[in-house]
Measured scan of single mutants.
Amino acid sequence: MGFKLLSKLLVYLTASIMAIASPLAFSVDSSGEYPTVSEIPVGEVRLYQIADGVWSHIATQSFDGAVYPSNGLIVRDGDELLLIDTAWGAKNTAALLAEIEKQIGLPVTRAVSTHFHDDRVGGVDVLRAAGVATYASPSTRRLAEVEGNEIPTHSLEGLSSSGDAVRFGPVELFYPGAAHSTDNLIVYVPSASVLYGGCAIYELSRTSAGNVADADLAEWPTSIERIQQHYPEAQFVIPGHGLPGGLDLLKHTTNVVKAHTNRSVVE
Rank of each mutant, 00 (worst) to 15 (best):
S56L: 07
G131N: 04
A136L: 13
S139Y: 00
L6S: 10
A200C: 09
Y135L: 15
H154K: 03
N92R: 13
Y34H: 14
Y68A: 06
E33D: 11
G53R: 06
H180C: 01
Y12P: 09
H260T: 03
V265I: 04
L13G: 09
A98C: 02
L5T: 11
P239M: 03
V28T: 03
F116N: 01
R226C: 14
A25G: 08
T109D: 08
L73S: 10
D79W: 14
L73C: 10
T207W: 13
H230I: 11
S56T: 09
G78L: 08
V265M: 15
D79L: 12
Y202K: 14
T134D: 12
G210R: 10
Q61P: 09
A136D: 03
S139F: 15
V75M: 10
E99K: 02
L195K: 01
A15N: 14
V45F: 06
G169Q: 05
V67E: 08
L10I: 06
F236D: 03
E233P: 05
S27F: 10
E203G: 10
R110T: 12
H57G: 08
A129H: 09
K251I: 03
Y188G: 12
T261P: 05
L9H: 09
T182M: 12
L156E: 01
L13F: 05
G210I: 15
H180S: 00
V45S: 04
H230S: 15
K102L: 10
G105S: 04
E44Q: 04
S139T: 01
S30P: 10
D216A: 08
L204Y: 04
L9E: 09
V256I: 13
S161L: 05
D164T: 13
K258H: 11
R226W: 10
I238C: 12
A192L: 09
L5K: 03
G131A: 09
S162D: 09
V189H: 02
A25F: 15
I224T: 03
A130W: 09
L173A: 03
D164Y: 13
P152I: 05
T182Q: 12
H252Q: 14
D125C: 01
A66C: 03
T93V: 01
D164A: 10
L247M: 15
I104V: 13
V11M: 05
I104W: 09
A179W: 01
P23E: 04
P69C: 08
H260G: 06
N262S: 09
A21Y: 13
P35F: 11
Y12A: 12
T254R: 08
Y68N: 05
P69I: 14
S161M: 13
L127S: 09
E157M: 09
T14S: 11
E145N: 07
D183A: 08
D248Q: 12
T93P: 00
V256T: 09
G32N: 00
Q103L: 07
I151E: 01
S155E: 03
F174Q: 03
L82I: 13
V124A: 07
G240W: 04
V42E: 11
H154G: 05
I227G: 12
Y202S: 11
Q49E: 03
A234T: 15
F3P: 11
T182E: 03
L127W: 14
S223C: 12
R76C: 05
E219K: 05
Q228K: 02
Q61T: 04
V187K: 01
A129Q: 06
A218W: 05
V67C: 05
L204K: 15
F174E: 11
Y188R: 11
P69R: 07
T114A: 01
I20C: 04
S31L: 11
E219D: 12
G72E: 02
Y202Q: 14
L156I: 14
Y48K: 03
Q103T: 14
L243G: 12
V187D: 02
P239A: 09
I84E: 00
T36G: 06
I50H: 14
E101C: 08
N149D: 13
L97D: 00
A200D: 14
D118H: 08
Q235R: 13
S113G: 09
T36M: 13
V45C: 13
T182S: 10
S223M: 09
R263S: 07
G177L: 03
Y68R: 05
R167Y: 03
A178R: 07
N262R: 06
L185M: 15
A21S: 08
F26G: 07
Q235A: 12
G53W: 09
V237L: 13
V256C: 15
L156S: 03
V11C: 06
T134Y: 12
I50W: 12
S161H: 03
T207R: 09
S208W: 14
A90E: 11
K4I: 15
E99R: 09
V166H: 14
V28E: 08
L73A: 04
V121R: 15
P138W: 12
I17R: 04
E99C: 02
I100M: 15
T140W: 10
A111L: 14
E99F: 03
R142E: 04
G32C: 01
R76D: 07
R120L: 01
P232T: 14
G122D: 00
L10F: 13
T253G: 08
A213I: 06
N184Y: 01
T93E: 05
T254V: 09
V187A: 10
S264I: 15
V257M: 15
I201K: 02
M18H: 15
I227N: 01
L6E: 09
D85H: 00
I201N: 05
V121K: 06
R167N: 08
D164I: 12
G53T: 03
D248R: 08
W55P: 01
E99H: 15
V126N: 06
V126I: 14
V237G: 05
R142Q: 04
T134P: 08
L6Y: 11
W55A: 08
A234C: 01
V257C: 06
V108N: 00
I104F: 02
Y135T: 02
S70I: 11
S31G: 06
D164E: 14
A130H: 15
L83H: 00
F168R: 09
L156T: 02
D164G: 10
I58P: 01
A179V: 04
R120C: 15
G43W: 06
G89S: 11
